[in-house]
């Protein structure tokens, strides 16, 4: 069988004395969209943070592209070809949209492709092209999310981590963001998505993990999970 692009083995993460993640096993294969769903405070963001390197797992290992990357800081994991769209977008508010995007291609390997990457991003988000010279802080919530995704794409990642991209967006924009994720994934990019919007994320993803109280309680094909009675009851409110 094919090797997974990203593999987590028995990952434990604690904040001081409080253990947040308990023995997480997770696999993401090349070119698929995988989603992690779960309620507030389940540890979804912590999971992504421990992959990108904001948090160092106390135990277990994170393997990316066959390389153990456990505890490597974000500025180095980015160089290996993964990046994250952080929760709440975190754009550089005092920089122009263009400069924000350029910051995305800060690392050497992606600088060479800056022009093509910019074209690609403007193709996905024509709105960003219109607002190129505006400051990041003047954008609306949806545009900021686009900018954060665009910035992430500028680093030419093979794996894109998305932390709650639909957070705080109007329903129409939520649809737009999810459509874009599908489009991006169609270019061959692998996506690991963390979402509270279970309905949409199960719809666009191939496989899903259910994270509750820091443990993976269920996983499988998204379409199977959508039919699962427990998921229906607790997350989809059907």
């Amino acid at each position: 069988m094919e090797e997974p692009l990203l593999k987590l083995e028995k990952v434990n993460v604690s904040y001081r004395d409080v253990q947040v993640l308990h023995g997480i096993d997770l696999e993401v294969y090349s070119s698929e969209i995988v989603t992690v769903i779960g309620p507030n405070g389940a540890g979804k963001s912590t999971l992504l943070n421990s992959i990108i390197g904001f948090e160092a797992p106390n135990d277990g290992s994170v393997i990316f592209n066959g390389k153990v990357i456990t505890g490597i800081p974000p500025e180095d994991t980015v160089k290996l070809g993964m990046t994250i769209v952080p929760e709440g977008a975190r754009v550089f508010t005092e920089m122009t949209v263009l400069d924000n995007l350029k910051m995305g291609s800060y690392i050497k390997t992606s600088r060479a492709y800056r022009k093509e990457s910019l074209e690609l991003v403007f193709n996905f988000f024509p709105r960003l092209h219109e607002r190129m010279k505006q400051k990041g802080g003047t954008l609306s919530g949806g545009e900021r999310q686009m900018l954060a995704i665009g910035r992430a794409l500028m680093s030419r990642p093979s794996l894109l981590l998305l932390d709650e991209p639909s957070l705080g967006l109007a329903p129409l924009l939520v649809t737009k963001v999810f459509e874009t994720i599908v489009e991006i994934s169609a270019t061959g990019l692998t996506v690991l998505l963390v979402e509270q919007n279970v309905h949409y994320s199960l719809e666009i993803s191939k496989r899903a993990y259910v994270l509750e109280n820091g443990k993976i309680v269920n996983h499988g094909l998204s379409k199977d999970l959508m039919g699962n009675e427990y998921i229906k009851k607790s997350y989809l409110a059907i």
Partner: peptide, 11 residues
């Protein structure tokens, strides 16, 4: 402006 965002840009 955003230190964590700088880190994930590879700074």
């Amino acid at each position: 402006e955003a230190e964590s965002a700088a880190e994930i840009s590879g700074v």
